[in-house]
Design a protein around this nucleic acid. Structure first.
Length: 267
DNA sequence: ATATGCACCTGTGTGC
DNA sequence: TGCACACAGGTGCATA
């Protein structure tokens, strides 16, 4: 979410008020094949607003038409003045007036791009509350987490509960809250769910301020990396000391995804 | 409801 | 240098 929000702000600044004047599709095989005809239908429309829902970007084009983008694991969107040759994994290029070029690249092709009416975008159905909005109230989160026997890390990654927490931030949030990723929701105490609720807001808003976490692929719509990787407490730090207590950070796999935690700070 | 595994892809790092 | 393997920021589906 912090990465997507950073890109949203860049697109808002650069594209609101601009008109789409051209589109080239180089590769249609994303997670779902691109529907080139409906994509091309946005040529001639103007960007009215750029919003975000969970990890989806919505470019509002007037009359209820929305251009929906998801960056998957490795996607990027860069907006610049000029074009240049096609990038190695550049799949779509869109030209705007006044002069701007948006380049959508995605090496792993797990991303998504489609056009539709907002109410009809099935991808947005069933998403949970926005973690930086008003919906994330501590009492509500307590009830939701206590209502499940799942591990709390799995519950935080479930986009139907809180929409937008990814694997980096799930580990960071639980470290900040002092709760092990393997704890069952139903076993959490009130004070713990309160700390989790506060950590969700604090970790995500700090990561937004730092313009996201950059390891290798991610950069914003100016091509600039984020800086949250410099303040990570546990993520990708297996064997290194916990910055809070100095104990060695551990890594474990559940369901094919890594969790990182401090065995001393997190109970 | 939940857990698990796998599928979709390419790139990178590691150990041999 | 080549090779095999594990793993990577996400989501969706099939199966128990």
């Amino acid at each position: 979410l912090p990465e997507v929000e950073t890109i949203r702000r860049g697109l808002e600044r650069k594209l609101v008020g601009s008109t789409i004047v051209g589109m080239e599709v180089f590769e249609r095989r994303l997670r779902r094949p691109l529907d080139v005809r409906s994509l091309r239908s946005i040529v001639g429309r103007r960007v009215v607003a750029v919003t975000r829902r969970a990890k989806y970007l919505l470019l509002h084009l007037g009359e209820g038409v929305v251009w929906l983008l998801h960056l998957g694991m490795s996607g990027s969107v860069v907006v610049a003045r000029g074009g240049g040759p096609r990038g190695a994994h550049e799949h779509v290029r869109v030209r705007f007036d006044p002069e701007a070029v948006l380049r959508y690249s995605d090496p792993r092709r797990f991303g998504l791009m489609r056009v539709g009416r907002e109410a009809e975008l099935v991808e947005l159905r069933g998403l949970g509350v926005e973690p930086l909005g008003d919906g994330l109230d501590a009492s509500w989160l307590h009830r939701r987490l206590r209502a499940t026997r799942r591990e709390v890390k799995a519950a935080l990654l479930d986009q139907r509960v809180v929409a937008g927490i990814g694997n980096i931030y799930a580990s960071e949030i639980l470290h900040r809250a002092g709760v092990r990723p393997t704890r069952r929701g139903v076993r959490l105490r009130r004070c713990e769910t309160e700390r989790i609720a506060a950590a969700i807001r604090n970790v995500l808003s700090e990561a937004v301020e730092r313009r996201g976490t950059s390891f290798s692929d991610y950069f914003d719509s100016d091509g600039v990396p984020g800086t949250f990787q410099t303040v990570l407490g546990v993520f990708d730090r297996a064997g290194l000391p916990c910055p809070v207590c100095g104990a060695k950070v551990k890594r474990r796999l559940h369901g094919g995804r890594s969790s990182f935690y401090c065995p001393a700070c997190q109970k």
